[in-house]
């Protein structure tokens, strides 16, 4: 790591920590999300310095792009106001800060402690590093974890559908009740049907 790289790293590290800290103290969830994007993009730039260009691109596209857009989308969807929680007891906050600082110190000490020659130290920047290598390894040595990851995503998708389905069913029935509300007798009948039917999906999920 040359001096220029070191300076770039320190600047990016300060930006990443600043973004993370502002995410922690911001009152409004949308501000938190935007500061987290700043922190994630700074981390992506650090990946570039650490000879991991493909991971940097994926970080920007998936983390700062897709995942954070999902967060902001949910905030807009629910029309959230500012959080009501920033006033905690001062003493408790100090204790929490101390505990987290101690934890961070322990993590760092544990990470830099390398007894003996347990770790073979390579030549810095990966020699002959190509993006193809990631693909070849992913479908070669790591084929089984790769397939397991796809299974995980499938389970997550099905899980979300199962969690949200009672909500969607209730909304659909409400919409149907609104459409057929021409006569009051019809509306009352639909409302009665809604009460009877609404127990079904929740039972389905429960079992």
């Amino acid at each position: 790591m040359s001096l220029a790289t070191l300076i770039a790293f320190v600047v990016l590290a300060v930006v990443a920590v600043f973004g993370g800290f502002r995410m922690l103290v911001s009152r409004h969830p949308v501000h938190s999300a935007l500061y987290l994007v700043l922190s994630l993009v700074a981390t992506a730039a650090i990946y570039l310095l650490l000879a991991a260009p493909f991971v940097a691109v994926v970080q920007v596209a998936v983390y700062a792009g897709a995942i954070m857009v999902l967060f902001v989308f949910v905030m807009m969807f629910l029309n959230l106001g500012p959080a009501q929680d920033v006033h905690d007891q001062r003493q408790r906050r100090i204790v929490t800060f101390a505990a987290a600082g101690l934890l961070g110190l322990l993590i760092w000490l544990g990470a830099i402690w390398r007894p003996g020659a347990a770790v073979t130290v390579g030549g810095g920047a990966l020699p002959g590093y190509k993006v193809e290598e990631i693909g070849v390894n992913m479908l070669g040595r790591y084929a089984l974890p790769f397939e397991t990851a796809s299974l995980l995503l499938l389970v997550a998708m099905v899980g979300v559908v199962v969690i949200v389905r009672p909500l969607l069913a209730a909304e659909r029935r409400q919409a149907a009740a609104g459409e057929t509300g021409a006569t009051t007798a019809e509306a009352a009948a639909t409302a009665a049907g809604l009460v009877v039917e609404s127990t079904e999906p929740s039972e389905e999920v429960g079992h």
Partner: peptide, 24 residues
């Protein structure tokens, strides 16, 4: 780099411990 990683992790732990908002 590991020091930066530990600092960012600690900030995440603080967020989980101090904040009450699910999304944060």
């Amino acid at each position: 780099v590991l020091a930066l990683s530990a600092i960012l992790f600690s900030i995440g732990v603080l967020g989980v411990l101090l904040r009450r908002h699910v999304l944060i």
